[in-house]
């Protein structure tokens, strides 16, 4: 499957990859959507996913260009190649959407997520939590005599692994930002 890059306003359409790939294999794709920063735009994108029954594994959104009124939505989704192509085409036809990039096929890309984990405990468990945090390059951003809040940045599976290790050590709460991603190179 080659790259799909929907450039709205283009005079030729060969940017679309419409040759079908009808495999039944579930694929995980990271899609970056550049949207007009206006009220309701996130609802349009989320409504598309819920209305048509697509999956959202992770979604992040923030303004990235204040003067151009553009926000970037990064969506991690799963589906068969046909569903992934539909998701991109459906996103592309939302009027407020300027650009759709499938980072998974346009890649390679870097993906990062930030998480904060509250670990409550004392004694040996507390020491072990701090030791593991050091190995994972997690920072302590808050501490009491019986708890830590760690901040960790990395690919989602690194955060999964860290959370798994913290669970028996008293993991009380976790907050994750969802994935932000960019293509490598220039």
């Amino acid at each position: 499957m080659s790259a799909l890059h929907i450039k709205k306003g283009a005079t030729r359409h060969s940017a679309y990859n419409l040759r079908p790939n009808f495999s039944d294999v579930q694929e995980r794709h990271t899609i970056a959507v550049l949207v007009e920063n206006e009220p309701g735009v996130l609802a349009r994108v989320i409504g598309l996913f819920s209305g048509r029954g697509y999956n959202i594994e992770s979604l992040t959104v923030a303004e990235v260009d204040h003067t151009g009124h553009l926000s970037r939505i990064t969506i991690v989704t799963t589906g068969t190649p046909q569903v992934i192509e539909q998701i991109k085409a459906q996103l592309g036809r939302i009027v407020s959407v300027h650009d759709v990039h499938d980072l998974t096929v346009e890649g390679p890309s870097v993906e990062r997520e930030l998480a904060m984990l509250k670990v409550v405990g004392d004694g040996e468990k507390r020491v072990e939590a701090l030791r593991l945090a050091d190995i994972f390059r997690a920072n302590v951003v808050d501490s009491t005599l019986t708890s830590f809040v760690f901040e960790i940045t990395g690919a989602p599976d690194k955060i999964d692994a860290f959370a798994d290790l913290m669970r028996p050590l008293g993991l009380a709460e976790i907050a994750r930002t969802g994935v932000a991603a960019l293509l490598r190179g220039d």
Partner: peptide, 18 residues
Amino acid sequence: IDPSSINKVIRVDIPIVG
């Protein structure tokens, strides 16, 4: 004219958006 119509239901061999 709508790329999302293509391959939505039936796989096609020659897709033409326009």
